[in-house]
Amino acid sequence: MSEIILNPKVQPQVPLEAQNVTPDMFAGKSIDEIKNIEIWFGNEQVSLSEFFDVEGESADNASEIKIIIDGDVDNTKRIGQGMTAGEIVIKGNTSMYVGSEMEGGKITVEGDAGPWAGRDMKGGELTIMGDAGDYIGSSYRGDWRGMSGGVLTVYGNAGNEIAEYMLGGKLVVKGNVRIMPGVHMNGGTLIIGGDVIARTGGEMKGGTIVVKGIIDEFLPGFEFLGVEKDIEIDGELLEGNYFKFKGDNATKGAGGIIYAATKGNAHIAP
């Protein structure tokens, strides 16, 4: 693996858009050429080197490139958007759309990520060690086809409407989420380690949601199927007792499954 290190200079208040920061774009370019790759600064295009010191060694193939962003890029959007191979490590926080539309490769955000991380993700691995915003692993506005593959993992908490219109792949949040996880979900797996405020799986038609923590409020449109012990999800055994629900019967053709740990969730079972 060739490492290319981007050292962020000061992050401007007007945000940067760095969809060009991917192993795919860097592949086959010299470090000088990479410095001149254009990123958006508001309504202007500037070269990467204006906001990042660039060093290291490039390679011909994206799969041989590891981009290390050595610090916070709080106000830089779209890092790793659409990447197909290689690796990106962000040693700090980042803004919206990290790893959106990604098809392959690996992104690790050591800090927090903004909304729409992994939006329309098709493959690869996106790992966020800190917290993430709303709409991670969601679809684009208006599209009924959201995240369809890959694995998106958040070690901290996440926001509202995660896995919205999810079709496939796996989204894991170790911490808590807000409302509407898995809204309109049609497939794939969503595993929430912590608590959910409300509306888990609203209008879902397919896919599986597991909540290991506490669901404050649950929707009336689900059907209670009983208690299951030690469930197997995507080849992984999740120990303990789970309430099992099917729904959301508000929608036609509802066939989504929600498992909620029995512990602490007695109030949502009928």
Partner: peptide
């Protein structure tokens, strides 16, 4: 969610 479920002939929780 409840009204939709009932309209579709299903019972609510």
């Amino acid at each position: 969610d409840a009204i939709r479920t009932v309209v579709r002939g299903k019972d609510i929780l």
